[in-house]
Design a protein around this nucleic acid. Structure first.
Lengths: 102, 102
DNA sequence: TGATAAAATCGAGATATCTCGATATATGGA
DNA sequence: TCCATATATCGAGATATCTCGATTTTATCA
């Protein structure tokens, strides 16, 4: 968990918004029947909600992934992104330490 | 507490380092006799430790102040900066909410 | 008043981020 | 194999951040 990298990833309102949306799968259209049971949301759904270009969203998800905030899983031609709750906790703890620990 | 503004201020390793240094007054040279009893650290001491230019440090402290992380108090020709612990807590709580609250 | 000292502000060049459209890559289906 | 679809990557222009030296502002002191 590189705090510097993580803060860069979070230093963008839309990327933070995406992380919030991913808290709840029902913020997005229902999964296709063939994806039932799979965790995460595909890039196209995120893009549709964010109203930014496909390439921008792909870049954003890559940043969030490299920072550790999301997990990417490929299923066929789709990539499903979901939150990495463990790393998010780790980041918050690191921030708390850095900002508060004596 | 504007999370966007706060994250921008924190998105710089030296500014975070300064916030850490300010946790403990003894990270800096002792205060001048005429400043005994005053809280905070003057810009020159921070600059000396950070080894960046005076203007850069002044700008940085201004950013940290606008973000709410430090309090500036002028005494004569000196400006003393100290942490705003209450706002730091508020920011951490806001981050926790934004990242974790369902 | 003039000199000095601390801090803030200004202007600018270098570097990074943002966001896009275009293109490349990977996969599944006809 | 060829095509369609989803995603990733590339290249670039616009904008923001970084950091500096120079200047200005504010305050003290002789």
């Amino acid at each position: 968990m590189d705090v510097d990298n993580a803060l860069s990833a979070l230093n963008n309102p839309m990327r933070r918004r995406i992380l919030e949306w991913l808290k709840d799968r029902s913020n997005f259209p229902p999964a296709l029947p063939e994806h039932a049971g799979l965790e995460g949301v595909c890039v196209a759904y995120i893009q549709e909600k964010a109203k930014l270009s496909q390439s921008t969203i792909s870049t954003y998800m890559g940043l969030l992934k490299r920072a550790g905030f999301v997990i990417a899983e490929r299923h066929g031609q789709w990539t499903f992104y979901r939150r990495n709750e463990e790393n998010i906790q780790t980041f918050l703890a690191a921030m708390q330490d850095e900002l508060l620990k004596p």
